[in-house]
Amino acid sequence: MTQFFQQLINGLSIGSVYAMMAVGYSLVYSIMNFSNFAHGGVIMLGAYFGFFSMTLIKLPFAAAFGLAAVGTAALAVLIERIAYKPLRDRKAPFLYFIISAMGASIFLENIVIATIGPTFRTYPQVFSRTPISIGGLSIGRLDLIMFGVSALCLVALVLFIERTKTGKAIRAASYNMKAAALMGVDTDRVVMTVFAIGGLLAGVAGVFFGMKYTVYPQIGNITLKSFVAAVFGGLGSLPGAVLGSVILGTLETFVAGYLSSQFRDLIAFVILIGVLVFRPTGIMGKPSEDKA
């Protein structure tokens, strides 16, 4: 039983990091109706930003964290400007966006390999490796912090989307971009805001990911699992992205714990195919809308 709860906590912790990545996919999808595969590259660079802020610039953890998040937010906005805005202006078909996203993703991975190199790097140890024991369970300090910070970020995101005027504009634009513009919403700014938010959370997630595992140029591929989680939850839905991520994180932790870690990643893609076959809109997919 203890092992069960132990796994559950680990699962929730990694699931919450997936959730921070998944909402980035979902937010962009809800506004622009395409899967932004460059997001994985942004997460990867977040891990590097955090790593070098701590090792090279020797910033304290919290500052490195902040710098990584701001850096990835800026990067995400920059990618939008260069890779997507020209397509938006030309009202290009969605396939072009996906191709552009893949191009950006390959570019980011290779520019890192070419400049920083393909080696695996390990974050300096920030939190003591001795776990905290609570009621007979021993919980890793990093896991606990990952879960706490992720939950906090996600709550902040929900409040922003639900309660602020900009959040309402994002929801309006996600339903219909043209109608939002007719209300006086600057849709360019909405797109920029969405990329900045996605990038911010990608930075946080990237640092955690790097700390939990290691930093290397192909991290982006692993973050595809959070994309799977977003599809599973229903692309375009924020609660769906969070729920899908938590389920995926928990599931794969249990698979690794009770079966074998060999099967861990397999599970994610079995889920993806299963969802696509049996429930293409995911758990909470946004109702299909007639685009004007």
Binding site: A169, A172, N176, K178, A180, M183, G184, V185
Partner: peptide, 26 residues
């Protein structure tokens, strides 16, 4: 200049009140 578009394009995912408030966005 305000524009009532062809096909209405109300925000189906927002409440009636929020739709009206979106009109007052600026």
């Amino acid at each position: 200049i305000c524009h009532v578009p062809e096909g209405r394009l109300v925000f189906a995912n927002l409440s009636v009140e929020d739709n009206l408030l979106m009109g007052a966005y600026l």
